[in-house]
């Protein structure tokens, strides 16, 4: 039962994140930037799970975004998979109980994901206009995501150990 609830939650979180990002969050953008909750959840998952599992979860979450957007299918899937893998590889030596670790993981994930997305967009798009505004946009995304990460990590960490996201066999 616990495993089914966990899997259901892991599916519901990115689905709801896309829904709220496309409706409510877009009204509260800072210079056009909105928080990327899908990435935040992927970063948290990667912080608390193995690298390979994290890459798969990142890939599926990114694929959902790609299918919803209907542009280049695979661009978000690839960037989120690689981002999750990187966080998953780094998470072995850190104290995950520390809130700051969750916040830093989101900050690092935002930067890696942004660099991958810009690189992939430049390589696959016929036109992709790059200027200083892109750098400012990435900085704003970092700020927005890390602010959101504070309450989100408290909930995610607790849920991973005592709540719906708890793995089978854990107390």
């Amino acid at each position: 039962m616990s495993r089914k609830v966990r899997y259901l939650m892991l599916v519901i979180l990115p689905v709801l994140a896309i829904f709220f990002q496309s409706t409510l969050f877009s009204s509260y953008s800072i210079k056009g930037s909105i928080p990327d909750m899908v990435l935040v959840f992927v970063a948290f998952f990667a912080l608390l799970n193995a690298a390979n599992q994290s890459a798969t979860y990142g890939f599926l979450c990114g694929l959902l975004e790609d299918l919803y957007m209907g542009r280049f299918i695979g661009i978000n899937a690839l960037s989120k998979a690689l981002t999750a893998y990187a966080i998953g590889r780094l998470q072995g030596n850190v104290f995950k109980e520390n809130l700051l670790v969750g916040v830093i993981a989101v900050l690092v994930a935002t930067v890696i994901n942004a660099l991958l997305l810009v690189g992939l967009s430049l390589s696959v798009s016929e036109i992709y206009n790059v200027d200083m505004g892109l750098f400012i946009s990435i900085v704003l995304q970092c700020v927005y995501n890390t602010i959101i990460a504070v309450p989100a990590y408290v909930w995610y960490y607790n849920s991973s150990h005592h709540g719906w996201l708890r793995k089978t066999g854990e107390n």
């Binding site: 919803y68 280049f72 299918i73 695979g74 696959v124």
Partner: peptide
């Protein structure tokens, strides 16, 4: 796999796939 799908789904395609339509229709 991602690179193959990215290449197959450029901006020029006339139609989106069935699964994309399904996700849109749900949202």
């Amino acid at each position: 796999m991602s690179f193959i799908t990215i290449n197959l789904t450029t901006n020029d395609r006339e139609q989106i796939t069935g699964i994309e339509k399904l996700i849109r229709n749900l949202y």
